[in-house]
Design a protein around this nucleic acid. Sequence first.
DNA 1: TTTACTGTAATATATGATATAGTACAGTAA
DNA 2: TTACTGTACTATATCATATATTACAGTAAA
Lengths: 122, 122
Amino acid sequence: MWFKIDLYSSLSLNEQIKMGIKESILKGKLREGDTLPSIRELASSLRVNPNTIVRAYKDLETEGIVIAKQGIGYMVLKGKAEIRRIVLKDLEKKFSEEIFRFKKIGFKLDEILEVIKNIWEK
Amino acid sequence: MWFKIDLYSSLSLNEQIKMGIKESILKGKLREGDTLPSIRELASSLRVNPNTIVRAYKDLETEGIVIAKQGIGYMVLKGKAEIRRIVLKDLEKKFSEEIFRFKKIGFKLDEILEVIKNIWEK
DNA sequence: TTTACTGTAATATATGATATAGTACAGTAA
DNA sequence: TTACTGTACTATATCATATATTACAGTAAA
């Protein structure tokens, strides 16, 4: 498969799978119009329960990234550029609450940016 | 009390309490040498189980921010400046994994900084 | 039509993290 | 002695996450 599961990640399996599919699109391993690996196939190759794949695929469908076709499979609806935008939006949502907390406490934007740069350089 | 608990926060009670104490120091409501509210007192004022406060206080002690004194209470060991540094380090740790993921995928630092700025301006 | 794939649905169970409940013990100080 | 402190321990509850299992339904090719 195009990505692997890290049992020690802070991300849940569900999130890792969704991210894995998005990354696959970004890397060009999946393109608009392609079908995702079947639920049972991905489940067995990642050694994960099929229900877990079902949930991830449905979430991706809700996000508008793929569409389900009974008896056929899941088809990719978005290309690289759109996924880039979506993923950056995901990041924004994920960091929002924490950043606001810091803003409220009285930290300055530059201090936060500095933290990000520090992480980046490691 | 100097802070409140948000039952709908994405942060656990434990994390909210630890953050609440740190913020209290940053706001000058708690100073080096002060004693924290007693475990039972804070538990009842936040309407939270005493065990939850115990855990939070012990975590703060592990971080070196307070020290326990049997029969007396918990005493604050750090001032504003040190807490500022600690809290920024906390942020760095919290964001690291996610930022690295983006770096690895091929995003540029500037794109991430842009996301942070977007959040900040809202 | 049969076969072998697809997705879908539903119920039950397991696990771990988090928080609660309650009781008992130990140190401090007035 | 009294009334506060922190500490320790065991039990229970809740929720999110993931697993296990079985059954049903759509698609396509032999």
